[in-house]
Simulated assay, not measured.
Amino acid sequence: MSAPLRLVLFDVDGTLVDSQGSIVAAMTASFDALALPVPDRQAILCIVGLSLPNAMAQLASQHSAADQHRLVEGYKDAYHAHRLEQGAASSPLYPGARQVIEALHAVPEVLLGVATGKSQRGLDALIEAHELERYFVTRQVADHHPSKPHPSMIDTARAETGVDAAATAMIGDTRFDMDMAKAAGVVGIGVAWGYHDRSALTAAARVIETFDQLPQALDDIWT
């Protein structure tokens, strides 16, 4: 009898890749273009993981909806330009990420996916830059879902793969990821190297310190 399928979903920014340089630079450019005060770095990193309109609504809550829309479009343009200029270097993989992805992918019953606040264009470009196309069987992005922590991304990934909630894990660095996992009824594993402080990951079943701890954490949870 074959083993039951498992689904491991990864957040991207702050979990798989360290994109904070590009995020802060693009956010700074978008506010500068409208001559608006730029939020500080920590405020910017605190909204990573939210869909861009939701993130901007928090960062620019004192500004009009029209200005928030302009900020969103300015951010998209600046981020895209930064990625074209720097390629994969704009969002390097965290140490151990590729090795763990390859190891999990090699297990026949384990399926890998992505659930991210990035756009489809942004995710596809990042996956191509790092040559990760063959690893992720489901890719959920902000274009097609409510913002995290709504469970829609996880629910859709499970529907696409046919994996039960009890056999699904969400890996992420923010409270939005862990709250999304809880809302979807799946286990959340927090990572300590991302953009939210460990203390914010209260909904996580556990928090790992390095990527190489992930396979054992999954084994412990599922066995």
Rank of each mutant, 00 (worst) to 15 (best):
F10C: 01
A89G: 10
G194L: 02
A60C: 11
A125C: 11
S19I: 06
A125V: 13
L104P: 01
T116N: 00
F136N: 01
P151C: 08
E160P: 07
L84S: 15
Q213P: 05
M153N: 00
R158P: 03
T28C: 01
L36W: 00
E133T: 13
D40N: 12
G190V: 01
V72G: 12
E73K: 14
Y75K: 09
A89E: 12
Q120G: 14
P53F: 04
S90Y: 09
D13E: 02
M153W: 02
D77K: 14
D40K: 05
F211H: 11
R98M: 10
A103N: 09
R134E: 15
L16E: 07
L214K: 00
H130C: 12
T202K: 13
G122D: 04
L104N: 01
V163C: 03
G49A: 00
G194R: 00
A66R: 15
S61G: 12
I23D: 00
A217E: 00
P151A: 09
G185Q: 10
T15P: 03
P151S: 06
D18H: 11
A169P: 00
A35M: 05
P215W: 02
S22E: 12
S19P: 03
A165W: 03
D40S: 05
V8S: 01
G14K: 01
H196L: 07
E160Q: 15
I154E: 02
L93G: 13
M180K: 00
P4E: 15
I189D: 00
A29E: 07
A88C: 08
A125F: 11
V110W: 07
A157D: 03
F211T: 11
G188D: 02
D220T: 10
S51T: 06
A205T: 12
Q99A: 15
A157P: 00
E160T: 09
V17M: 08
T223R: 08
P92S: 08
T161G: 06
S91R: 10
T28F: 07
A81H: 12
E85K: 14
L84F: 13
G190N: 03
L5W: 08
G96D: 10
A66Y: 12
S119C: 06
D177L: 06
G87R: 09
I44D: 04
D179N: 11
P151Y: 04
K182P: 09
I154V: 14
V72T: 15
A200K: 14
A33T: 03
S51V: 03
A43Y: 11
H130L: 14
V72M: 10
L59Y: 11
I44R: 01
A60N: 08
V72Y: 05
M27F: 07
